[in-house]
Amino acid sequence: MARSKTNDDRGDMMQGTLAMLILRTLLLAPAHGHTIAYAIERTSEDILQVEHGSLYPALHRLEERGLIASFWGTSENNRKAKYYRITPTGRKHLASERNRWDQIVNAIARVLGPATE
């Protein structure tokens, strides 16, 4: 029991932020998993290293919650791939999550105060 619990905790932490990143990425255009993974890495200038494997369960969870939808399509290099696009609910969710995130970041910044070096 104990083992799976820690697993879930970590998942939850990751999930929130990862979900937001995925939704943000999909805001621009529908994409498949491989593109999403690289897009996140690139836009964060390689600071956020996503374990590509963990991206997929996250995608499924988002789909399950109706925040994104999927369809099978053909990729740029002519391969069959599962594409994801953001749904209207997803957009709304992203906006509210974004708000909350900004608040948290600001709050943390206020607590930490100006950098002292």
Partner: peptide, 16 residues
Amino acid sequence: QDFALEIDAYLQHEID
């Protein structure tokens, strides 16, 4: 089965 296909697609893209 769907999921297996999806992972396969990822790997193919990465390999490409």
